[in-house]
């Protein structure tokens, strides 16, 4: 066992008095204190100051109400936090989030619609349907069976069959083949009356009617594709009913 000098022992005395030293260091300090009066006095002062500190900082009795108040406050805070954390559609945060999502979705739909409209308008030229027949001669299919109905008045009620330019009929811009087909079907359903002045193909789309067959030609955006719609003339039954037998066909014409 080595012997300590006073300087080194003084640094260890504060640990020694509290029992923080074990083993050889503890024995060395004990041996030095047994031999050195000055260091022994120092150890006594450390012990005294330690007991004074313990005395001065003795924890007071806070009482049951003090602790209950702490628990109450903590549990109340936890409960309120958990209530706030519950997701609900009626909480403002979720309400704002839902409204924001709805705005985004609606904006997206509107934007997509706008972009697709612009693309169509730039890609496909307008298609017109022309006919030499008078508008008054093309009655509305719904009004067809009405006895005594005025064909002219019926045609003027149908916006699709309205004739803003007299003899030629311009339909609303139908820029896709599907739209053209639907237009042709509309015309076919319109049961165009066979007229002596059968229409001829004057434009990209033409209507032809003969005494036996109604012929509709529709020119699509592709110049090589023309849709020809042949519709047999309606046969009127004595009771006023009719039977439609449409035979659409499509073909390529160079």
């Amino acid at each position: 066992m080595r012997t300590l000098n006073c300087k080194r022992a003084a640094r260890m005395i504060s640990l020694y008095v509290a029992g923080d030293l074990v083993g050889a260091p503890e024995r060395e300090v004990a041996a030095h204190l047994a031999a050195c009066d000055g260091c022994r006095r120092l150890a006594e002062e450390f012990s005294e100051s330690r007991s004074l500190l313990t005395e001065a900082c003795a924890s007071p009795e806070f009482g049951a109400e003090f602790y209950a108040g702490i628990r109450h406050a903590v549990l109340g805070e936890i409960a309120s936090d958990q209530m706030l954390a519950k997701p609900s559609l009626f909480r403002p945060r979720w309400l704002y989030a839902t409204a924001f999502a709805a705005v985004i979705i609606v904006s997206g739909v509107i934007l997509q619609h706008f972009v697709s409209n612009r693309r169509q308008s730039t890609d496909v030229p307008p298609v017109t349907v022309q006919s030499t027949s008078q508008p008054s001669e093309v009655p509305s299919p719904r009004k067809k069976h009405e006895p005594g109905g005025a064909p002219g008045a019926q045609a003027s009620k149908d916006p699709a069959l309205a004739n803003p330019h007299g003899s030629s009929r311009h339909f609303a811009e139908a820029r896709q083949p599907d739209a053209l087909l639907s237009q042709a079907a509309l015309l076919s359903a319109a049961q165009i009356e066979p007229a002596s002045q059968a229409s001829t193909s004057l434009g990209p789309v033409a209507l032809e009617t003969s005494s036996q067959i109604s012929r509709i030609e529709i020119q699509t955006a592709d110049p090589n594709i023309r849709i020809i719609w042949l519709s047999p003339q309606e046969s009127r039954e004595p009771d006023g009913t009719k039977h439609d037998q449409d035979h659409p066909e499509t073909g390529n014409r160079k």
């Binding site: 504060s14 509290a18 002062e45 100051s49 330690r50």
Partner: peptide
Amino acid sequence: VRSQVSSARAKIKTYCD
């Protein structure tokens, strides 16, 4: 911890002195 405790005790002792 021992170092911190030792230093703190020395300061408290100085106050007590």
